[in-house]
């Protein structure tokens, strides 16, 4: 049962990711954004299969909720209609395929040869309570630094979106 669910979610993730970057029917960024939401949703399914329930919830809330709404706002804000028509050159597509294919082959071969997962059994039951405890004891300083980072990002965005950028 779990194996079937893994294959379903993995296939859904990869197909939707491919449709984000190279959709044969539509080049519109809105379509890409919608397929990115589907990709993130099925990734959350994979997280659930890995018993990372809190991260699955955060993935849906933060990525599919907040980040994608931001993306869609910006897509609607910029008028990108005329740019859909520009053609991709065949040579560019072929070169990109060769380069990325080589990198993919290298990574997959390395994972296969290294035998990294050999004999390992899934055992971690990372409950939300454990994660929270770790976050507020061992990782307290990074946690606070991240909150400062969010504040800095907010100030930066406000500054960047002013009318006359000085």
């Amino acid at each position: 049962m779990e194996a079937y669910l893994f294959y379903i979610f993995a296939a859904l993730t990869l197909v939707c990711a491919l449709l984000v970057v190279a959709n044969p029917f539509s080049r519109s960024p809105v379509t890409s954004a919608m397929f990115l939401v589907l990709t993130i949703g099925s990734l959350a399914g994979l997280f659930v299969l890995l018993h990372a329930f809190f991260l699955a919830a955060v993935q849906i809330l933060v990525y599919a909720g907040a980040v994608m709404v931001l993306f869609l706002f910006v897509i609607m804000l910029l008028n990108l209609k005329e740019e859909e028509r520009r053609k991709l050159r065949t040579a560019a597509v072929a070169l990109a395929l060769v380069a990325v294919g080589a990198i993919a082959a290298m990574i997959l071969k390395t994972v296969e040869k290294s035998g990294v997962g050999f004999g390992l059994k899934p055992k971690l039951e990372g409950g939300t309570a454990d994660l929270g405890k770790l976050l507020f004891t061992q990782y307290l300083l990074p946690f606070e630094v991240v909150s400062v980072l969010l504040l800095v990002a907010m100030v930066g965005v406000v500054l960047l979106s002013k009318k006359d950028l000085k």
């Binding site: 993730t13 190279a22 960024p29 299969l49 890995l50 395929l97 993919a104 997959l108 994972v111």
Partner: peptide, 28 residues
């Protein structure tokens, strides 16, 4: 399903993303 299955999916997903960065012309 072992660790290497998840790593395979992860590597393929990374390469799909890289393909998009190399191929597409739209910043978004």
């Amino acid at each position: 399903i072992g660790l290497e299955h998840y790593l395979f999916v992860s590597a393929l997903l990374f390469c799909v993303g890289l393909f998009g960065v190399v191929l597409r012309h739209n910043l978004l």
